[in-house]
Design a protein around this nucleic acid. Structure first.
Lengths: 173, 173
DNA sequence: ATATGTGCAAATCTTTTGCAAATTC
DNA sequence: GAATTTGCAAAAGATTTGCACATAT
């Protein structure tokens, strides 16, 4: 079970941006498909791209407002829509650990699995060849043309499991 | 890739209730863990158990009201909370095909994957040994004590993919 | 008698929408 | 100048909460 190809990274750490696994940046992907962006939208896309970890709409709004205080949340949602329609971001719930909001992340690397600790709220990410294989199998057997896949796990992280922590992370962040 | 152990069922068909794969009913699970239910809650649990396919909160409310017209939605949500806390239901989003509501299903069988067709809205379910293996691997490598897992796929079903259908299922149901 | 569950109404939270003004092509 | 984008305010949709009353132990 060791050395299975599965790789894990904590999410407090900046996302690996530009290592061998990654494809294009969001901006590159948009431009190369002929989408013209306003300055406003470019700024939003950049913030999302540069974010460490997962951003929700209001987090993205907050960051965008540091550049331009007059950005409105409607613009954030409309820009996220644009990215979603093009399959450039993944939309996550992180097991509703912090209410109903959605989290977004640039889809510029390899698909990964999100693990949410129900005790401490920590989010971990893992990739696995088995995951890719499973997707292939689903495609083959169901005939589905897969466009998005989301695998989320809830439980207790190694540390909390050892401490015997209760589930308490459900409070608002 | 054939005969891989992966099994698929369309969700218009009643859930397999009582075949070899299933564990206990929700009621059995609750009673055997010493939970006492009011008539109201028992009715809700039964409706959820008997539902074909996936129910959202208002669907559950509607069914419950056929028995007792005075049930309130708050009671539905409170009962669902009870079940969630005990890990007896799975909470799904079905790729937000119909807005932000959640869908619930009794967790009395084997974990399965949900495939949502973004064109026609059809939901299919598949199980796969690979899925179980992947969960085992995640557990082994991350150290997570896994309590819930949710794998959702969005795309176009075999029929819509063949027809070249566009994505249109996003309208409210 | 004490604790728990229920209905009702209001509140909350996130996301979406209509519209007029501003910006872009 | 026609089409798209923006901010603002209001609306919408799902879920949660406070509270007085009802039910259960």
């Amino acid at each position: 079970m060791r050395n299975s190809g599965l790789a894990a990274t904590g999410s407090q750490v900046p996302k690996e941006n530009g290592n061998g696994l990654n494809r294009k940046s969001l901006l590159e992907a948009l431009e190369s498909s002929g989408v013209r962006l306003t300055a406003q939208r470019r700024a939003l896309v950049e913030e999302l791209q540069n974010a460490e970890g997962h951003l929700d709409a209001s987090g993205l709004l907050e960051r965008a407002r540091r550049r331009n205080a007059s950005v409105d949340r409607a613009t954030v949602y409309r820009t996220l829509d644009l990215l979603k329609k093009r399959g450039l971001v993944d939309e996550l719930d992180l097991m509703h650990l912090h209410g109903e909001k959605h989290y977004y992340e640039a889809r510029t690397g390899r698909d990964h699995i999100h693990l949410a600790c129900l005790s401490c709220g920590r989010i971990e990410e893992v990739t696995s060849p088995l995951y890719d294989e499973l997707k292939k199998q689903i495609r083959a057997v169901s005939g589905f043309a897969i466009e998005v896949v989301r695998l989320e796990v809830g439980g207790r992280c190694r540390v909390c499991a050892r401490k015997g922590n209760l589930k308490t992370a459900k409070g608002k962040q």
